[in-house]
Amino acid sequence: MLDASEAGFTEFVRARSTALLRTAVLLAGGDRGHAEDLVQGVLERMYVRWDRIDGPPEAYARRALTHAAVNRWRTRRRRPELPLLTGGGGTGTDTAGRDPAATVDLRDVLVRALLTLPPRQRAVLVLRFLDDLPEEEVARALGCSVGTVKSQTSRGLARLRDRSGHLDLSNTTGGTR
């Protein structure tokens, strides 16, 4: 790799590794170790072909990451996925005005529910709602149609609602239940 390319790749890794890892953690079902493996594998492949990547490297990376996570070899007894459920982290404002404990509970329930979704459906929601990708880019990352993204998003959210009891939790806002 030429020096300029090397510098470009290094800058990309430094700038985007954390974002990619955050996506990967959710794609990998909360398994941080597996997520790092996924990101590292994607970056290794990118390094080898850095000068031949068409288009924005970030899009390539997300496509490769999603592909690796969704299509990973399935065996019945891989190491169990470990949901990332402790801590909670973050301080996002709850526009619904729930008390902080209820907000943490709700987020915890939603992430738990998300991690139970099928990998492809989970990937759609992660790319849409963590990475804020438009439907067209999600479709490109997953190699499917925009219509499939729409339907998977709808089904995924419906399953989240079912599994998290979202309405019930929402109704606790302000103690109105």
Partner: peptide, 8 residues
């Protein structure tokens, strides 16, 4: 809520 949960 999902967006906030994933970010958190």
């Amino acid at each position: 809520d999902l967006r906030a949960a994933l970010r958190a």
